[in-house]
Write a protein that binds this DNA or RNA. Structure first.
Lengths: 196, 196
DNA sequence: CATTAAATAGAACGATCGTTCTTTTTTATC
DNA sequence: GATAAAAAAGAACGATCGTTCTATTTAATG
C-alpha cells in the first residue's frame, strides 16, 4: 500500500476542516470540535499537525491547492483575453457559492480575521491573497494585449476582489440570492465583455 | 449633575470597546480584556450591560451613531448629485482610515465574522449594513435625477461596498498604502465624477 | 506470524472565557 | 453630613480552549 494510514487520516481531517472553516472561519476552528467531527480524539488529531497554528496553515494550503484545481485551472484553460477574465470571475464565484462551502470562501473571510494579527497564519494567508491578486493582474495585462483593451491591471484586480467580497456579504449576511449574478454582471460591464 | 456616573463609565467603556474592536473584531472582544483597558473589574464592567451579547450590540450601536456623525452627516451636507456620491466615498474611506480605527472599520470586519452565526448581534449588524446600503442606493437614485446619469442604484451600491472592502484588505492585510486612493479613483471613474 | 513502529486514546494541566453571587466602596439625595 | 441607592470589586463557578504526557491500540514490516 503506497498511501499510509496517516496520510489518509490527515487528508480527511483537512477535508472536514475546510468545511468547518467555511462555517465558523479558519481562526475559530477548534481541535476538539474538529476531532469530534472526524471521530478522533483531540490528541489523536493534534498529533497530525503538532499545534493549532500548524493545522491552520495546513488548512490554508489545502484550500489553496483545491482553489488551484477548481478555479485557476479551469479559468486558465480559456485562452488569454476578455473571455479569460470572464472565466476567472465565473469560476471564482462558483467556488464561493459551492455547496461544499456553505459559509462561503474561507480565505476571504479569514482576510478580515487575521488582518489585525501577527504570525505565520496571517503571513501565509497574505501570501496567497497577494498571489491570486497577481494572477488576476497578469491576466488583465495579457487581455490588454490580445483584445486591444486598456484596463489597469491593479485597479481591475482590486475591482475583482471587491465585487467578490460584496457578493459574499450580500449573499451570506444579507441573504440576497441575486448577489452572485449581480457581481458577475458588474464584472462583465467593467471589462467590456459581452457574454454571448 | 445631569450626567450620572454610570452614563459616563458606560460611554468610556464603549469608546474603548470601539478601539479594541477595530483591532481584534467585535466578536473577539472579551469582558476581561476590556475591563483591564478601562481599569475596571470584569464584573463591574459587565454590570453595565448584563451580558457579552448586550455589550456587543451596544458597541455596534455606538459605532453606528458615530458613523452617522462622521460619515453620513458630512456626506449629506453636500447637495444631491455626483458630488454627493463622491463625498460619500471620501468620508467613508476616511472613516476606515481614521487613527481611532487602527484595524479599520469594525462593522465591515464583523460582517465576515457573523455571517455564519445566528442571534441578535448578527441581526443588528445586518440591519445596519442594509441601512447604509439603502442610503447609498437612494443617493444614487437622486444623483440620476439631478445629473442626468443612469447609474443602477443596486449595482452602484454593491460596487461601493466592494471597493470599500477591497481597500480594507489591501491596506491592512497586504500593507498597500495606495489602496485607499485607488478605491476613490475607481469610484470616481465609475460614477463619472471629475474631481476638480 | 512476530516484532517494531506508528497512530490514536485518554487523562490531566494551566489558562481564559462569560456569568453569578456577595461584599465593599462610591455616588447621589435629603 | 447622614442615609439610601448605585456602582464597582472580588471571589468563585463551570465550560472550553490548546497542549502535553503516558498508555493502548492499530498498522506496517521482516
Amino acid at each position: 500500500m503506497q498511501e499510509t494510514k496517516a496520510q489518509r487520516t490527515r487528508a480527511q481531517i483537512l477535508s472536514v476542516a475546510q468545511h468547518e472553516a467555511s462555517l465558523v472561519g479558519i481562526d475559530a476552528l477548534t481541535l476538539g470540535g474538529l476531532a469530534a467531527s472526524c471521530n478522533l480524539s483531540k490528541s489523536g488529531l493534534n498529533a497530525h499537525f503538532g499545534s493549532k497554528e500548524a493545522l491552520q496553515i495546513a488548512v490554508i494550503d489545502a484550500i489553496a491547492e483545491r482553489f488551484r484545481v477548481e478555479v485557476a485551472q479551469p479559468a486558465f484553460s480559456v485562452p488569454p483575453g476578455l473571455a479569460q477574465l470572464d472565466a476567472i470571475m465565473v469560476h471564482w464565484i462558483a467556488w464561493s457559492d459551492h455547496p461544499d462551502r456553505p459559509g462561503g470562501c474561507q480565505l476571504i473571510a479569514a482576510s478580515f480575521d487575521f488582518d489585525g494579527m501577527e504570525g505565520n497564519v496571517r503571513n501565509r494567508l497574505a501570501d496567497w491573497i497577494n498571489a491570486w491578486r497577481s494572477v488576476i493582474a497578469d491576466a488583465v495585462g495579457r487581455a490588454n494585449g490580445v483584445d486591444k483593451t486598456n484596463l489597469d491591471p491593479q485597479q481591475t484586480s482590486s475591482l475583482a476582489y471587491g465585487l467578490y467580497m460584496a457578493q459574499h456579504v450580500e449573499r451570506l449576511l444579507l441573504g440576497d440570492e441575486s448577489a452572485s449574478p449581480r457581481a458577475l454582471t458588474q464584472w462583465r460591464r467593467h471589462i467590456g465583455h459581452d457574454d454571448t
